[in-house]
Amino acid sequence: MSGRPVKHSVTLKGHRTSISLEDEFWHALRALADRKALPINVLIAEIDVDRGSALGLASAIRVHILRDLQQRLAEAQIDAR
């Protein structure tokens, strides 16, 4: 993994668009889509709808992944008690 952003094309609202994310985020996004049993385009579309206009899509995806990881960590800590 290089840590450099990698561009992938996705379809949002019937249009192709490119998103640049580091490999680590692409892997985490695919894993999240798998856990939710969603196609990756559907997950990205959900993130796109939720992000509002103040945040770029790539940033919104990174924040979404971070929040998911934080939530799972908190749940794991509760389960460990």
Results as ranks from 00 to 15, higher is better:
Met1Trp: 08
Met1His: 12
Met1Ala: 12
Met1Cys: 03
Ser2Phe: 01
Gly3Ile: 01
Pro5His: 05
Val6Trp: 03
Val6Gln: 10
Val6Asn: 04
Lys7Asp: 09
Lys7Arg: 14
His8Asn: 13
Ser9His: 08
Ser9Glu: 14
Ser9Trp: 05
Ser9Ile: 13
Ser9Gln: 14
Ser9Gly: 12
Leu12Cys: 08
Lys13Asn: 14
Lys13Phe: 12
Gly14Leu: 04
His15Arg: 15
Arg16Ala: 12
Thr17Met: 12
Thr17Asp: 00
Ser18Thr: 14
Ser18Trp: 07
Ile19Asp: 04
Ile19Ser: 01
Leu21His: 07
Leu21Tyr: 07
Glu22Ser: 05
Glu22Thr: 05
Glu22Met: 03
Asp23Glu: 14
Glu24Ala: 13
Trp26Ile: 07
Trp26Val: 06
Trp26Thr: 04
His27Gly: 08
His27Leu: 14
Ala28Gly: 08
Ala28Tyr: 00
Ala28Arg: 14
Ala28Asn: 07
Leu29Ala: 04
Leu29Gly: 08
Leu29Ser: 05
Leu32Lys: 12
Leu32Phe: 10
Asp34Tyr: 11
Asp34Gln: 15
Arg35Glu: 15
Ala37Ile: 07
Ala37Trp: 01
Leu38Val: 02
Pro39Leu: 06
Pro39Met: 09
Pro39Phe: 11
Pro39Arg: 13
Ile40Lys: 04
Ile40Asp: 02
Ile40Met: 11
Ile40Asn: 03
Asn41Glu: 15
Asn41Ile: 02
Asn41Gly: 12
Leu43Met: 05
Ala45Lys: 10
Ala45Trp: 06
Ile47Tyr: 02
Asp48Ala: 10
Asp48Leu: 03
Val49Cys: 09
Val49Arg: 15
Asp50Ile: 09
Asp50Thr: 11
Asp50Asn: 12
Asp50Ser: 14
Arg51Gly: 03
Gly52Gln: 02
Gly52Ile: 06
Ser53Ala: 12
Ser53Thr: 09
Ala54Lys: 12
Ala54His: 10
Ala54Tyr: 00
Ala54Phe: 00
Leu55Phe: 02
Leu55Lys: 11
Leu55Pro: 05
Gly56Ile: 01
Leu57Asn: 03
Ala58Thr: 01
Ala58Asn: 06
Ala58Gln: 02
Ser59Glu: 09
Ser59Phe: 00
Ala60His: 00
Ala60Arg: 01
Ala60Phe: 00
Ile61Trp: 03
Ile61Ala: 04
Ile61Met: 04
Ile61Arg: 00
Arg62Cys: 04
Arg62Gly: 02
Arg62Ser: 03
Arg62Ala: 04
Val63Arg: 06
Val63Ser: 05
Val63Lys: 07
His64Lys: 08
His64Gln: 09
His64Gly: 02
His64Asp: 05
Ile65Met: 00
Ile65His: 06
Arg67Asn: 13
Arg67Phe: 09
Asp68Lys: 06
Asp68Val: 11
Leu69His: 13
Leu69Val: 09
Gln70Leu: 15
Gln71Ser: 14
Arg72Asn: 09
Leu73Trp: 10
Ala74Val: 08
Glu75Asp: 15
Glu75Leu: 13
Ala76Lys: 10
Ala76Cys: 06
Ala76Tyr: 06
Ala76Gly: 13
Gln77Met: 05
Gln77Asn: 07
Gln77Leu: 09
Gln77Phe: 00
Ile78Pro: 03
Ile78Trp: 08
Asp79Phe: 06
Ala80Lys: 10
Ala80Phe: 07
